[in-house]
């Protein structure tokens, strides 16, 4: 195949303990470390492996977000993407708007495959992949843990609640990457230098004719209710007693 598009979202880093703003308008992101959504790294790694097997010619990283998302796209280029596209918007897009923006890029780029992470670790929505597939009227293979390309079809093993499901899809298609699809490579210093020279195009969201307006109104953001403090028991006998008293064993 010629081309794979990979979705790269800029998110609050996995290790950051997120705090809610006192006014309930959102979470604190000022001065917080930002990274590539971990599932998107897995998506990119899979695309790179497909290219390295000689089954794809080009891997294009696509992000939708603020100007600063160029940092995450540079990371994607350092991992090995051939070029990158930023659809620039300062609005926090809902998955449906993000899918529409992605579709606009698809119609320009005509990829044979789109790979995205199964969810972003900020909004945890897990919607964008299937929404892209729906708007594009193409197959979706969500929660992929194995991908095999066979000419114009792909066979995907999906991690579902019951176990592992295998489906076959015609290309082009959308795949969403689950945790165990692969282990993303580490970026080496020379690759970071090389990545600076790779092409990164910036397009304004408005120029794609996609509205950034949110369909859902965010009324309030609040911290979760804490669980009541528990007790420490001194030994196994006390633990078993406590469980018996509660009628749990």
């Amino acid at each position: 195949m010629r081309k794979i598009l990979v979705g790269i979202k800029r998110v609050v880093d996995y290790n950051v303990r997120v705090r809610v703003k006192p006014d309930g308008s959102g979470v604190v992101t000022d001065g917080v470390k930002m990274s590539v959504n971990p599932f998107d790294e897995i998506a990119l790694e899979e695309a790179l492996r497909i290219r390295e097997r000689g089954e794809a010619a080009e891997v294009v990283a696509v992000s939708i977000g603020p100007d600063d998302a160029q940092q995450q796209l540079r990371t994607a280029l350092a991992m090995g993407a051939d070029r990158a596209i930023l659809v620039k918007t300062d609005a926090a897009l809902e998955p449906l708007a993000a899918a529409k923006a992605f579709l606009a890029v698809i119609s320009k780029e005509n990829p044979d495959l789109v790979i995205v992470g199964k969810q972003a670790i900020d909004d945890d929505a897990a919607q964008t992949g299937p929404m892209i597939a729906a708007l594009w009227d193409r197959p979706q293979a969500t929660f992929a843990s194995k991908v095999e390309i066979k000419g114009t079809t792909a066979t995907i093993v999906r991690e579902v609640d019951a176990g592992l499901e295998t489906i076959e899809v015609d290309l082009p298609a959308v795949i969403s990457a689950d945790l165990r699809l692969n282990e993303p490579r580490y970026v080496k210093l020379p690759d970071i230098m090389k990545a600076k020279k790779k092409p990164l195009d910036v397009i304004d969201l408005a120029s794609l004719g996609v509205s950034a307006e949110a369909g859902l109104k965010c009324v309030l953001v609040e911290p979760p209710k804490p669980r009541a403090k528990g007790i420490m028991v001194k030994d196994v006998a006390e633990l078993v007693d406590a469980l018996k008293k509660k009628g749990l064993v």
């Binding site: 900020d122 009324v219 979760p224």
Partner: peptide, 12 residues
């Protein structure tokens, strides 16, 4: 829930 349950969002 968002952010792995660290922020609860009310949506309309």
């Amino acid at each position: 829930p968002t952010y792995a349950g660290n922020a609860i969002v009310t949506l309309e």
